[in-house]
Design a protein around this nucleic acid. Structure first.
Lengths: 242, 242
DNA sequence: AGAGTCGATCTGTGATCTCGGATACGCTAC
DNA sequence: GTAGCGTATCCGAGATCACAGATCGACTCT
């Protein structure tokens, strides 16, 4: 059941086919994490255990654990007196803070990635960039957001810092639901793709300073575009129930 | 049942008296988190659900959720084919990485704390420092580790960056079980307390650069002392079952 | 005496059920 | 028409149970 006729985050997710050898909980967790990073769920959207269990075809037990993990990661928050879990609605102060942290963590990861990158990784990154360009040309927001995350994560993964990578993922988990709002800003795709191409070029030329600059610019531009669209979004919704 | 007659992490924890109005899960989570940060559990120590439920007097359900959250934070890891949860045994590469990240996050938090600190916070911090000094004088490792965390967290909390604070706590959660090993290094207390007093003085004089330097030195010294004692610890145990 | 095997006992996993509370909806009274 | 109340429904929290797999130990056979 979709509230108010709006699109439901679950609708973008296909039914979960459980692979054996992995726990249901870990698969649900991974699936929802990616979905949150890719902005499948709107800020303030509530995730009910029973609804989720119906959508995914499992009992509530593994879902509770997965959602609890996401809460621990900052990807969900307990909301009303009902203790329902919802996608966090970030304050402006939190947004600024996350931007600060992202700049620090991701520029560092990018600087390290310059050293550890090989031809095969570079090819994957170029592919992701091409897909993202195509998504931008066809205004395919879903594809754009997915390939955007793939593009960035491939770069950071090359830094070979698993703990750092985890922290960066946490920050994306928090801003993911908002990035979908940012891409509706005018000319967002164009400016963003400029930074991405600059990053790709810097990576190819092993220019650490240029890569860091491109990443920082991408983060700042996205934050700025987000600021433009966020005001109107918050004004429409009413989130201060708690 | 304690394996091999060694001290059990649960033994340092009193029985949990559940306060109503809060969920059992969140209280267990908070309790275990503090315990891990304070080094109550040894690296490699296994936390069984049923054992924990017996120790805390609840069913396994809230415990599973709490432990799963701690796993998500990096404070626990799934271990054997049995999927038992244990305190992580960090590799040397992970230790170096965490030290890098801690320097970045905590020096930044310290720099921000300089601005936001007031007289009442300063008094609390001085108190924590005194308690830590007394613990060092009496060789009380438990008290030392607890007040060490209180001292640092009070400083970082003054930065008023809740997200950053969460990331710092995660890093402490990972190194907590190891710090107890570091304090057994010769002269660790003396060197560490020197940094702490320097940090307190810098805070009082609002000297941001000195505070950052003191924090960085504290982290580096602890890492160095840890390196001295870690080798022998790993050699005794055998952790590579998986 | 040593190696292999069988069984008891541990482990986490997931489903189901009950409980208390919050929410939402419809009815009634004004 | 609207405000207020009561009930039906939905919510998460936690306990319990059944199950499958891993581990450990004792016992047996060679």
């Amino acid at each position: 059941m979709v509230r108010g006729g709006e699109s439901d985050g679950w609708s973008r997710l296909g039914p979960l086919t459980l692979k054996e050898g992995e726990t249901a909980q870990s698969q649900i967790y991974a699936r929802l994490r990616d979905a949150l990073i890719s902005g499948y769920f709107r800020p303030g959207e509530e995730l009910s255990l029973r609804r989720a269990s119906a959508a995914l075809g499992t009992s509530v037990t593994p879902i509770r654990e997965a959602l609890r993990q996401l809460e621990s990661d900052g990807g969900l928050e307990v909301f009303g007196g009902n203790r329902v879990l919802r996608v966090p609605v970030l304050s402006e102060a939190e947004l600024i803070e996350i931007r600060e942290i992202r700049v620090k963590l991701e520029s560092f990861a990018a600087a390290q990635a310059i050293n550890g990158i090989g031809p095969s990784q570079l090819r994957l990154i170029s592919n992701a960039c091409s897909v993202m360009q195509r998504a931008a040309d066809t205004d395919d927001a879903d594809l754009y957001l997915e390939s955007n995350w793939r593009f960035h994560s491939l770069i950071y993964r090359a830094a070979e810092r698993p703990v750092l990578m985890g922290l960066i993922e946490q920050m994306w988990l928090r801003v993911g639901p908002l990035i979908r709002l940012a891409v509706t800003a005018p000319n967002h795709f164009d400016r963003s793709m400029e930074s991405h191409r600059a990053a790709e070029r810097a990576l190819r030329e092993r220019d650490g300073a240029a890569l860091e600059a491109a990443i920082v610019r991408d983060i700042s531009d996205a934050a700025s575009d987000l600021g433009k669209t966020l005001g109107s979004f918050v004004r429409v919704k009413n989130f201060n129930r708690t």
